[in-house]
């Protein structure tokens, strides 16, 4: 408890609980300033632990995205998520997959997972994804999925480029044609 600015550590409460909680969450998930009085080490440890938990939950919703990135998953996710508060695991994974797709670094299995999600649900990047009411095609990095009456089928797998380093992770192309999540 050193270095709290301008006498803010008087015994009277600094701010109400609501404000103090909001400051702490912003510092942990939205790169907000450290709230007065908190030790920096435990704050950093908590921030890292939240990112690890969040990565684990996103990996459960996007197993092929996580598996496709292999041992790069944890750092890729943490780099992307550190300044972005969660929008829920489904949207977090979706946003990350689209970002990697834009950078042309989305692994093939993850492209297929993204294409099947794009075919099943309509997601504008701002609000919760909603089921598509009409037949739709989802595409990502060469993968093509089609949805008819709520069932999604992967029509074409994403091409496996042999020059991609570290792409030895087995994927689910052809083994999970019907996805009903």
């Amino acid at each position: 408890m050193t270095g709290a600015p301008d006498g803010d550590c008087a015994p009277t409460p600094r701010a109400g609980l609501a404000e103090r909680q909001a400051e702490l969450v912003a510092a942990l998930v939205a790169a907000g300033p450290p709230p007065p009085g908190f030790a920096p080490g435990p704050l950093a440890a908590t921030r890292a632990a939240l990112l690890r938990k969040r990565a684990g939950e996103v990996a459960r919703h996007w197993p092929l995205l996580a598996a496709g990135l292999g041992d790069r998953w944890a750092t890729t996710f943490a780099d992307w998520a550190a300044r972005r508060p969660t929008a829920g695991s489904l949207r977090d994974g979706w946003d990350l997959a689209r970002a990697l797709h834009d950078q042309q670094t989305l692994p093939p299995a993850a492209a297929e997972e993204l294409a099947t999600r794009e075919a099943r649900l309509r997601y504008d990047g701002l609000r919760a994804p909603r089921p598509r009411r009409v037949p739709a095609v989802g595409r990502a990095a060469g993968a093509v999925a089609v949805q008819i009456a709520g069932r999604v089928r992967l029509l074409r797998p994403a091409p496996r480029v042999s020059t991609r380093p570290g792409d030895g992770v087995p994927d689910a192309a052809g083994s999970e044609l019907w996805i009903s999540d």
């Binding site: 409460p13 109400g16 609980l17 609501a18 404000e19 103090r20 909680q21 909001a22 400051e23 702490l24 969450v25 912003a26 942990l28 998930v29 939205a30 908590t46 632990a49 939240l50 938990k53 969040r54 939950e57 508060p85 969660t86 929008a87 829920g88």
Partner: peptide, 22 residues
């Protein structure tokens, strides 16, 4: 515990201050 505040989701359980207000 609390998991959100000020419109932001923390994503996991966060501790409370052990205060009378809490």
């Amino acid at each position: 515990a609390f998991v959100r505040a000020g419109g932001l989701e923390a994503g996991h359980l966060l501790p409370l201050p052990r205060s009378r207000e809490a």
